[in-house]
Nucleic acid binder design. Sequence first.
DNA 1: CGCAGCTCGGGCAAATTTCCCAAGCCGGAT
DNA 2: ATCCGGCTTGGGAAATTTGCCCGAGCTGCG
Lengths: 217, 217
Amino acid sequence: MSEVAATGISVLLVDDHPIVRQGYRRVLESQGDLHVVAEADNAADAYGAFKAHAPDVVVLDISMPGASGLEAIRNIRARSPRARILVFTMHNEAVLVKAAFSAGASGFVTKSSEPSAVVNAIRSVARGERAMSDDIAHVLAEDSLSPTGSVLDQLGEREIEILRQFAGGATTEQIATHLNLSVKTVQNYHYLIKTKTGARTDAQLVRLAASCGLTRI
Amino acid sequence: MSEVAATGISVLLVDDHPIVRQGYRRVLESQGDLHVVAEADNAADAYGAFKAHAPDVVVLDISMPGASGLEAIRNIRARSPRARILVFTMHNEAVLVKAAFSAGASGFVTKSSEPSAVVNAIRSVARGERAMSDDIAHVLAEDSLSPTGSVLDQLGEREIEILRQFAGGATTEQIATHLNLSVKTVQNYHYLIKTKTGARTDAQLVRLAASCGLTRI
DNA sequence: CGCAGCTCGGGCAAATTTCCCAAGCCGGAT
DNA sequence: ATCCGGCTTGGGAAATTTGCCCGAGCTGCG
């Protein structure tokens, strides 16, 4: 860590908005110990940039067009398990946070955070620690009744199938017919899936399903 | 206008993310002729800041919690018709663009734009010209040629705002609180939106919103 | 002026969601 | 073999939401 302080921390910035990247770059560079060595504007390029520059920390917005940011996390971590990834986004849904961590993220910071909190999170992640902003800790705490891992791992096969069809736009009756179940059973699954994933609304469920690749939009 | 060039252009930044504001500030200040004289993190404070600092240009993100950014535009313009407002957001829906201009915006630039395009737009707006980024011009052009308007064209401004928040994962109560409406009204809008768009389930609504660029997954 | 459209909300029956519960089944642990 | 735990399937009842109708205020427009 002392050598980290001496060398500084190299950062790969991944965000699809050029001016936002530029702004972050300036904020980070002004810190003295943070150096943006590369940028990427989509999930696909993120891994290439990671390979090429081996940054200490990847700062990435998971709400990007094209492939999900969660995919990018898995992609990078699968091939470089020591990668440190800090998710930096405006979303603060518990399901997303859990999905990001189980995909291999080291930290999760919202854009509502103070700049100082963001740079501190980058330093924490660079040291190998987990980091999250206060608001994220709060939503996780509220949510804190499912200690189990990946969002989809806690779902059974039937639940996943029903989630897929639901997120695809099917009505409860259609799902019941497709699967030869009673409407009541499908309703119960619907409820179960929501509680298991921590989604509070159907919209969050759809977003979750989409971010896990369960459905395409 | 020559005195504008001599004095520089004063800017009020309105965005709800502190670090994003800080980033923009640095990018703009680095131009030499642009000076950020004030910031606001919500629509309600925007007018107060405008009054206090009389900036040449207001740069404002319309996707903020609380009152709609469109409200803020109308608010400022109603009391200071000479105000120059540049909308700066990640959304690129034709309906939103048209709503912003008819609310009194002088320009509309997306965050996908190059930083140079953004600063040039600020300068154009400061000169009293209309400004928009290339992608916005493109969607407006497409929109004016399309015989069958977008699904979103049949929705009112409030409906679009509520659809955006809903698709983003907000609960009915959260939306009601954000927009200072009764829960009942939000429920009615929810229903209206469904019937107008023909969506049968909330999931279909989310997919529709996503495919129109109203929200991102 | 009148009409149309948007915004905002009340009302009320019907439907759905939210929880709690039970039973059958199956695989693994004891 | 037996028990435990998890998955699957559904019933039931209270709480909430939806579906649809309504009116009122406001604004812009012919």
